[in-house]
Design a protein around this nucleic acid. Structure first.
Lengths: 158, 158
DNA sequence: GTTCCTGCAAAGAGTTTGCATTGTG
DNA sequence: CACAATGCAAACTCTTTGCAGGAAC
């Protein structure tokens, strides 16, 4: 069984072929980073991650490629809490939603099968067809020593 | 029974008194507009609305006052679909979530009591205390003549 | 009179766009 | 070798900030 990365590469190959686009190194490098190294990241973080690994790539290409990958369903885009967009890989993953710690910013995922029913019911009520949904729970960690707090401090000091 | 606007003014009076702030005309005008004329608006729309009614007010004051009103719980702030913040009045309103039409941008509200249960359960699962949540359903209107589509076209042409 | 608040304009953050250059097909 | 995609920098949008003048207490 192929790994999610292998599946994603095959899907991107296919999309590029279908649309007469070009197989550039940048597109595959970005896809690889998203499928093997990053999760819940913003465009800036992805750009920094790639340049720090020695790759020479522009912000424009990062944004262009993210849009391409969102279009062909390989990446999902969210607009969490703060005014920026977050991305994550979507192939080989169940539908899920997010719970975000307001003190450290750490994001965790959860699945709740009942939520799908609620979304369908609301759609029916309004005569609308739900295409996607986003539930974000903003919460506070109850553990006195939250393991992610240090991460948040490091992040804030930058 | 006092109207939501009257309650909101009283609450703002109280907040201002408690914190030793000042009762400026701008703050009360903004509060009045939010409680009687606008819903699901962004800062720019509020600013335009006020200036079009002849009021001379700066963007900085609009942003400052929105922050003040969010702090004291009179206004709620959301980060829907696109990369901007939306606001709405919160006093005298039940907890609700939003369904957004992707073709015209129209936003409607719904309440689902089961959602609260889901949110609590997820909090328990992760040992976190949920503070608030946002569910946004992105959907497509099934009615061939969506009454809000014209609104969207007008909006787009601006 | 003191201090907070406002207006203005400039700065910031995140994202998009225009255009010359590069490189895929 | 055509033309899509890249890199760079500038433009753009939304929001925040610094500061001088003005208003509330």
């Amino acid at each position: 069984m192929p790994s999610p990365l292998e599946q994603a590469i095959a899907a991107l190959d296919n999309h590029i072929l279908q649309r007469g686009l070009r197989r550039t190194e940048e597109r595959y490098e970005i896809l690889r980073a998203i499928y093997t190294e990053l999760t819940h990241f913003d465009a800036e973080t992805l750009h920094r991650h790639l340049t720090e690994k020695g790759m020479r790539i522009s912000r424009a290409t990062v944004y262009n490629t993210l849009e391409l990958l969102v279009e062909c369903g390989l990446v999902k885009r969210y607009t969490f809490g703060e005014n920026r967009m977050l991305y994550e890989r979507s192939l080989g993953r169940r539908q899920h939603d997010h719970i975000l710690c307001v003190s450290c910013g750490h994001i965790q995922e959860f699945c709740d099968p009942q939520l799908g029913t609620i979304v369908e019911n609301v759609g029916t009520l309004f005569h609308m067809k739900p295409l996607r949904h986003e539930l974000v729970i903003y919460a506070e960690c109850l553990r006195p020593a939250c393991p992610y707090r240090q991460e948040a401090i490091t992040f804030a000091e930058k």
